Computed example of a mutant assay.
Amino acid sequence: MFGGGGMNPRKMKQMMEQMGIDVTELDAEEVVIRTGDEELVFSNAQVTRMDAQGQETYQVVGEPEVHEASETAGAVESGPEASEADDGGEAAIPQDDVELVATRAGVSKDDARDALEAEDGDLAAAIARLE
Rank of each mutant, 00 (worst) to 15 (best):
M1L: 13
M1Y: 15
F2Q: 08
G5K: 11
M7V: 12
M7P: 03
N8Q: 07
N8C: 01
P9A: 02
K11T: 14
M12A: 14
Q14K: 11
Q14F: 09
M15D: 06
E17G: 00
E17T: 03
Q18V: 00
Q18F: 02
Q18I: 01
M19L: 13
I21N: 01
D22M: 10
V23Y: 04
L26S: 03
D27N: 09
D27M: 01
V31E: 03
V32L: 07
V32Q: 09
R34H: 11
R34S: 14
G36L: 12
D37K: 12
V41M: 00
F42H: 00
S43L: 14
S43K: 09
N44G: 10
A45S: 05
Q46D: 10
V47P: 06
V47D: 05
T48G: 02
M50D: 06
D51C: 06
A52Y: 05
A52V: 06
Q53V: 08
Q55A: 13
E56T: 15
Q59P: 02
G62D: 09
E63P: 02
P64I: 05
E65G: 03
H67W: 14
H67P: 07
E68P: 01
E68Q: 07
A69G: 11
S70L: 13
T72N: 09
A73S: 08
S78V: 09
P80M: 13
A85Q: 08
A85T: 11
D86F: 10
D87Y: 11
G88H: 07
E90W: 11
A92L: 05
A92W: 09
D97T: 14
E99T: 07
L100N: 12
L100M: 14
A102W: 06
A102G: 04
T103H: 09
T103S: 12
A105M: 04
K109C: 03
D110T: 13
R113C: 00
R113F: 04
R113V: 01
L116K: 07
E117S: 12
A124C: 05
A125P: 03
A125T: 07
I127P: 01
A128F: 08
R129D: 15
